[in-house]
């Protein structure tokens, strides 16, 4: 039996479902050609966002990647504005400028994401630095992939954050694929967490498709960090269901592997477990499904109906206007 409260477990289940339904709809939008650029699907990795971000306060910071679909939503970005953003519309929190890869909503502490692999890990270090500088007990969490752990800046950041004992949680979502390359071809360590040893910070590996395990590990890590014990590297082993982007033919992947990863489905695993434990009933699943479907459909409609910026709007925000700083 789970040690977590029934309410917490149901909240986690609802978020897993919401992220799943949302992602399915976003993929439909991408396939219909409405999403500018790419859509880097998050299908299959939802347990990481849910398990980590549910621990965070509104004032805590997160930064993400090109594949950060779940984190921002769990952190509190409005679903409707979220869809508007990935469609490049005015009502997005970034005015349609961020799109799918560079979404930020400062108001809820979703500080930004980067289209450059590993590019924004250092930003999270800076956010943690600012919290410490100001004497706040905020925590800064940065999500990145196994691919980013091969970037030099990642190593610089682990070292610097550890040297200065900054309140940063480094969350590696290890889905086994760095764009088109399998982990085994580009790294000689099995666990990214092992890299922490080189810099003197704790490195932990958990089953990233088990939302409870992630929640458990992240909870302990965040508590220690908030207490002032310095940064931690948390590696969540998960699976990327689709290609690097929606529409990727994945010729570099074996069909059995592509099929096989679905057995790790974090949503189904959690749902069956809760059903078995009597926390969830078929009736509740239907009701939650209905509620989530409604929310998601509303968000999609809102996004599609949100106006595009005007071409001349492109000149906004290149530089700060007088008095722009708050």
């Amino acid at each position: 039996m789970s040690s977590l409260s029934r309410e917490k477990l149901l909240e986690m289940f609802t978020w897993l479902l919401r992220l799943r339904r949302m992602e399915e709809k976003c993929i439909e939008l991408a396939l219909s050609g409405m999403v500018p650029g790419w859509l880097h699907s998050y299908l299959g990795q939802e347990a990481v966002s849910v398990g980590v971000v549910l621990h965070l306060r509104r004032e805590d910071y997160i930064t993400g990647t090109h594949r950060s679909r779940g984190h921002d939503l769990v952190k509190g970005v409005d679903l409707k504005r979220y869809v508007a953003e990935i469609l490049g519309r005015k009502d997005g929190p970034c005015f349609g400028r961020g799109g799918e890869m560079h979404l930020a909503d400062k108001e809820v502490g979703a500080m930004g994401a980067s289209g450059i692999v590993g590019g924004i890990v250092s930003t999270a270090v800076g956010l943690g630095f600012a919290a410490k500088y100001k004497g706040e007990d905020r925590v800064s969490v940065t999500f990145f992939g196994d691919g980013a752990s091969n970037q030099g800046t990642f190593h610089e950041c682990l070292n610097l954050a550890t040297v200065w004992k900054l309140p940063v949680l480094f969350v590696c979502e290890n889905n086994g694929w760095a764009e088109f390359s399998p982990q085994g071809k580009v790294m000689c360590v099995e666990n990214v967490a092992a890299r922490a040893a080189a810099y003197g910070l704790p490195g932990i590996t958990v089953d990233g498709d088990d939302v409870e395990a992630v929640y458990q590990a992240a909870g302990e890590a965040i508590a220690r960090i908030r207490h002032g014990d310095g940064p931690i590297l948390l590696e969540c082993k998960t699976h990327r269901w689709l290609g690097h982007y929606v529409g990727d033919p994945q010729k570099y992947r074996m069909p059995q592997e592509v099929e096989g990863v679905r057995q790790f489905d974090p949503l189904m695993r959690f749902e069956s477990k809760l059903l078995k434990e009597g926390i969830l009933t078929e009736e509740m699943i239907r009701e939650t499904g209905e509620k989530v479907r409604h929310e998601v459909n509303e968000a999609i409609e809102f996004g599609k109906n949100s106006p595009f910026p005007e071409p001349q709007d492109m000149f906004k925000f290149v530089y700060a206007e007088e008095g722009a700083a708050k």
Binding site: Y61, T63, K106, M111, G112, G119, I120, V121, S122, T123, A124, V125, G126, L127, G128, F129, A130, A131, Y133, K134, S140, G152, T153, E156, C157, N159, L160, V163
Partner: peptide, 25 residues
């Protein structure tokens, strides 16, 4: 606190400046 000597990690501390600026420093 106000004058920070860094490791030789320009990429990390330049990026740190971005995060710090986002947080109002």
């Amino acid at each position: 606190k106000r004058v920070k000597d860094t490791p030789i990690s320009e990429s990390a501390f330049m990026g740190l400046a971005l995060g710090a600026a986002m947080a109002g420093l």
